[in-house]
């Protein structure tokens, strides 16, 4: 396959970036998208040029590190996968592919396609945890009966890998889906209820401080989320937040 690439190149956080054109002649349809970029980088290095920087780690769709906007969609055109799970068979010979970093003011570009997603870490640190007695005789979590469908919903929320596709897809660069998944995974379980009020208030405050946009309920985040995190979580976070405000 012959593939035409238009890739965002940016030297560093302070530089102005631009789209640079590349052509790859020998792309195999069974290559993963990241392998295709590896081939491009090998070519660039062989020519003495700077390779394209992009984030990747596990390449198994579970770590949430890869983060590319491909032809205007986070993680590319396929559903419920990360970029590392995207294969070149999803494209045709002669296609032009535009590759950009996830865009949000809260996700500044560090270099080329790599963005700084530590804003998510700070939201998590603001309340995405439970305080547990680790004195040596903790109560086994399984000792507390939890309804199956509730446990399932908590687990569904906990599958969020924090990749940032929700922010990238949202026309408002809102982080509501990420934050709501992290709020929900605890809010649904009895262990998480103890700190529920402070958690939702602190995490939403941090989310707003980071400069993410507001939710317009378009549902783009849910569609593009590689883990299929549901909009129900955003509604749950809104409920949690409003009841926390009533509690004071």
């Amino acid at each position: 396959m012959k593939i035409y690439l238009k890739i965002w190149r940016q030297k560093d956080v302070d530089s102005k970036g631009k789209i640079v054109d590349y052509t790859l002649n020998n792309v195999e349809s069974d290559m993963s998208f990241l392998e295709m970029l590896d081939v491009l980088n090998e070519d660039l290095v062989a020519k003495g040029e700077e390779p394209v920087e992009f984030d990747h780690d596990c390449r198994e769709g579970i770590c949430g590190t890869c983060s590319l906007m491909i032809n205007g969609q986070p993680h590319g055109p396929d559903r419920l996968i990360t970029v590392c799970q995207l294969h070149m068979r999803s494209f045709n010979d002669g296609d032009t592919i535009v590759i950009e970093p996830f865009r949000a003011k809260a996700f500044p570009v560090i270099k080329d396609l790599i963005v700084d997603r530590t804003a998510f870490d700070r939201i998590q640190q603001a309340g995405g945890y439970i305080s547990v007695n680790t004195s040596g005789n903790p109560v086994d979590a399984n000792a507390i009966p939890i309804k199956k469908h509730v446990a399932d919903k908590a687990m569904d929320a906990a599958t969020c890998i924090g990749c940032g596709a929700c922010v990238a897809a949202c026309k408002n660069a809102s982080a509501m889906l990420f934050t709501s998944a992290k709020v929900s995974q605890f809010a649904l379980l009895p262990q998480g209820r103890v700190e529920a009020t402070e958690r939702v208030q602190n995490m939403v405050r941090q989310m707003d401080l980071e400069g993410f946009g507001n939710c317009t309920n378009t549902g783009a985040c849910e569609v593009e989320c590689p883990k299929g995190i549901s909009l129900e979580n955003i509604a749950r976070m809104n409920r949690e937040y409003l009841s926390a405000a009533v509690e004071g």
């Binding site: 032809n71 055109p77 949000a104 003011k105 026309k171 408002n172 660069a173 378009t218 569609v223």
Partner: peptide, 24 residues
């Protein structure tokens, strides 16, 4: 606020792929 939250816009953004026109 929402416009400011994006910062630099995308060269290519396929909003129609994941959300209806009316909501956007």
């Amino acid at each position: 606020q929402n416009k400011a939250a994006r910062g630099i816009g995308y060269v290519k953004y396929k909003g129609s792929a994941n959300a209806p026109w009316v909501s956007r």
